[in-house]
Simulated assay, not measured.
Amino acid sequence: MAAQTYTNPVYPDYFADPFVWQHQGVYYAIGTGPAEAAGQVEDRHQRRVFPLLRSHDLIRWEFAGNALQRPDPALGDNFWAPEVAYCDGTFYLYYSVGHEDKRHQLRVATSSNPLGPYQDAGQPLVDPEACAFAIDPSPFQDDDGQWYLFYAQDFLDTEDGVRAGTALVVDRLISMTQLAGEAKVVLRARQDWQRFLADRPMYGGIYDWHTLEGPCVRKYGGQYYCFYSGGRWETDSYGVDYGVAEQVMGPYSDVGNAAGPRVLRSVPGSVLGPGHNSIAVSPDGQADYIVYHAWDTKMEARRMCIDLLHWTPDGPRCQGPTWTPQSL
């Protein structure tokens, strides 16, 4: 059979923070749509949040409705970065909701169908009073069946060379809707390319703010790789790097990225700000593909792209971002 070809983006409409999973031979994708990103959910979707896509080959996608029954509007109008886990016959949709970039909380919703509707479980995963800004929840199941949740939250300290800003943590799920409350730091920003904004007013102070977000964990060769996006999502500094650990709870190290993100980075004049990835297995089960969003050169929309992920002796690398025809 001749190889199929595709050209990025693989879906023409706005579809940021793409998370792809496979269930019973069908690929599903869920992401942040334009209304969710702009805080206009009530105007655009009324009762349902987060666009869903469906595919049989990873490259041809169709819109399949919206996933989440909107929870209490008082929680906010910005809904970001959903991901889905399947456990014991139930689909769990993890997401954040809040008001612009000031207060965001992590929540989970459930459904018996991959396309929903998903019903919110009724309580936050992390206490909003103890953690005012938590985003980008990413569930991961280890080989022994135990589930964990990786996510991003804000830090203000700058000891031992770390930078103030948003960074990554992990906690164990004692059930699919409850965390153990024993979060550990996964990675903190340490590099200039991870800067989000200098002199940013935050929490009553002014900070040189750095950002690590969009965690995605994959176990390979007995090690845990936590992919993440660093920098500012609206600029060409944004890209995908990773940390590696011997244990799922860490410690993780991303040493070696001083020159910039090692997995995906902007290609001036062609692709801007590739990031917030998930990982999907090819239809034949033989290859890993990194699924991410990227801006067009006019920065009109973030759209879903895929590219082959290579596991090299130096760590994971990607042949992308690509914008010309590729073989699947």
Score class of each variant (00 low, 15 high):
Ala3Asn: 10
Tyr14Cys: 10
Ala16Thr: 04
Pro18Val: 04
Gly25Glu: 11
Ile30Phe: 13
Thr32Ile: 05
Ala37Asn: 14
Gly39Met: 09
Asp43Val: 09
Gln46Asn: 11
Pro51Asn: 07
Gly65Met: 03
Arg70Gln: 10
Arg70Ser: 03
Asn78Arg: 14
Trp80His: 09
Tyr92Arg: 01
Leu115Glu: 10
Gln119Pro: 00
Gln119His: 11
Gln123Ser: 14
Pro124Lys: 08
Gln141Trp: 00
Asp142Gly: 01
Asp144Arg: 06
Gly145Ile: 05
Trp147Glu: 04
Leu149Met: 14
Tyr151Lys: 03
Glu159Ile: 06
Glu159Trp: 11
Arg163His: 14
Ala164Tyr: 10
Gln178Pro: 00
Gly181Ser: 11
Glu182Asp: 15
Glu182Ala: 12
Leu187Ala: 13
Leu187Arg: 05
Arg188Cys: 06
Gln191Thr: 07
Gln191Cys: 13
Asp192Tyr: 09
Gln194Gly: 03
Ile206Thr: 15
Tyr207Gly: 06
Glu213Thr: 07
Val217Thr: 10
Tyr220Cys: 11
Gly230Pro: 02
Arg232Pro: 00
Ser237Ala: 14
Glu246Gly: 15
Pro251Lys: 09
Ala258Asp: 12
Arg262Tyr: 01
Leu264Ala: 11
Val267Met: 11
Ser270Trp: 07
Ser278Thr: 10
Ser278Cys: 10
Gln286Asn: 10
Val291Trp: 04
His293Pro: 01
Arg303Lys: 15
Ile306Met: 07
Asp307Arg: 05
Trp311Tyr: 13
